[in-house]
């Protein structure tokens, strides 16, 4: 075998090996950046919250219970279909004051129901219960229901369509 091309500490064979591995790694990293970036995009790019009309001001009576209002979520894609729908529990506290809660339980996100007779929100999954002010009444939730901003704009009640609230530590 001719090993005549040997320099001080690198043979011709080692050189080819290193070049091959380096080329493969560089190519993998180069194509990896757009691939990984594309897959991680949803956690990098956030849609702006948007106000969504949920009904005329006069359709909500003062002092009534909570009513469920539906609206389109923050990032409705053309193929989202019914999954673009979002909901909140809304109550008219006074002439110009509204309160809106997320339908997602603060425990693990299941949909809470307003029980008018009991004046409680109840979660079907793991038994979380909330009072009418959204504070925890019973069960595992670590905090009260999440509140959404509400405003009245041109005679329309509007809710700020927000992300699904995720309880973090």
């Amino acid at each position: 075998m001719s090993e005549k091309t040997q320099t001080s500490d690198c043979t011709r064979r080692q050189f080819f090996m290193h070049v091959s591995i380096a080329l493969g790694s560089i190519a993998a990293v180069l194509v990896g950046i757009p691939i990984v970036g594309s897959i991680l995009a949803p956690i990098i790019k956030k849609p702006e919250p948007e106000w969504r009309a949920v009904g005329a001001l006069e359709s909500f009576s003062v002092g009534g219970g909570y009513v469920k209002v539906d609206y389109v979520n923050t990032s409705p894609l053309p193929w989202a279909g019914v999954t673009a729908q979002s909901a909140a529990w809304l109550r008219r506290e006074s002439e110009d004051k509204f309160i809106a809660f997320s339908v997602n339980c603060a425990h693990l996100g299941c949909p809470v129901r307003w029980i008018e007779g009991a004046k409680l929100f109840m979660c079907p999954c793991h038994g979380g219960v909330y009072y009418e002010d959204g504070s925890v009444a019973a069960g595992p939730p670590p905090r009260g229901l999440y509140q959404y901003p509400v405003r009245v704009n041109n005679g329309q009640v509007e809710i700020l369509a927000s992300p699904i609230p995720i309880t973090t530590v």
Binding site: P42, I43, T74, S75, W79, A84, I166, T168
Partner: peptide
């Protein structure tokens, strides 16, 4: 945690 949740949902809410 917040990033993982967004990764699972594919955004900050269920949808398209």
């Amino acid at each position: 945690g917040g990033w993982l949740a967004d990764f699972i949902l594919g955004g900050d809410t269920v949808g398209g």
